[in-house]
Computed example of a mutant assay.
Amino acid sequence: MKADPAVQRKLLDLSEVDAELTRLAHRRRTLPEHDELTQAEAAVRQAKDKLVEVETAAGDLDRDIRRIERDVDGVRARTERDNQMLTGAGIGAKQASDLQHELETLARRQSILEDEQLEIMEQREAIGVDVEHSREALAAAEQKLSELAERRDSALADIDAAEAGRRRAREEALPGIPADLLAAYDKRREQRGVGAALLLQRRCQACRLELDRTAISELRGAPADEVVHCEECGVILVRTKESGL
């Protein structure tokens, strides 16, 4: 393939722009915010699960407290009724004895229920503290997630702007490059990641390897308009006065 040396040198400008686009794409993929967001999202899920857990426990205790309150109210109502009957007129000795026995049983039952109620209320108070802490932890996790998402979006916006500028620069670098030369360049760029590189002091600037004497001799004998390649990495080598030939 033949191409004017000046045209070949245009490939260096194109290669520089493509290298910048590659670096930007790599930066987009490897933004630290990606991993940080994954961790923050996991933290939010864990905080939500913990909150559901403690709120469920609090709800169970609230139901137990209401149940005991109903039981205590029932015992008190029964006690009040028995007391009214006991102090009423026309009650026999056996009925009075039965009522007195029932009142003693109700008093023991009320004492047991009130002890149970106190214990559950203490548990509810403790779990209430856990609920507040869990809500605060969830709010903090969601705030961190929001801040990370904002940082990620800002970084991506910067990359988008830089990529748009580099794509415009690429379009500006294309005019004057023959289709066959551009196709050869693009093919090597897809295969190697780099399409063309400067030969500087007998060293390929793509693979950074110094060419051996045989390769240098062949390059030295090749016409200036001959499109040549690095024998090591296969990219198009652009020769200039600094190539050391």
Rank of each mutant, 00 (worst) to 15 (best):
R27Q: 14
S15V: 01
A3H: 04
A206N: 10
C230S: 01
R70T: 15
G176S: 05
L145I: 03
K50H: 14
R135Y: 03
A107S: 15
G193Y: 09
I127R: 08
L138E: 15
T105E: 15
D62I: 01
A137L: 11
P5M: 07
D160N: 13
E125A: 14
K48C: 04
R151N: 10
E242H: 12
E231C: 08
A19W: 10
L219S: 05
A224W: 12
A169L: 13
Q123H: 03
A96Y: 03
A40E: 04
E20P: 00
Q205T: 15
L145W: 06
I236W: 02
T240C: 10
A173P: 05
G74E: 03
Q84D: 13
R23D: 15
R76Q: 13
A77Y: 06
V75K: 10
R188C: 02
R166N: 10
K144I: 03
R27H: 06
R189I: 01
A183C: 04
E172I: 06
Q46E: 15
A173C: 14
R220D: 13
R203W: 00
I177G: 01
R81L: 14
A184F: 02
A89V: 08
E116F: 00
A58P: 02
A164K: 14
L219I: 10
L145P: 01
K241W: 07
S97G: 05
R192Y: 06
R66K: 15
R27V: 02
V17N: 00
P178I: 09
A155E: 14
L103E: 04
A19C: 07
V238S: 06
K241A: 14
N83T: 09
T56Q: 08
A93Q: 07
V228S: 08
R70N: 14
T105C: 01
G195F: 07
E242D: 13
A25W: 02
A47L: 07
A126K: 12
R66T: 14
D180Q: 13
N83S: 07
T38E: 14
A140W: 02
A89G: 03
E16K: 08
E104G: 05
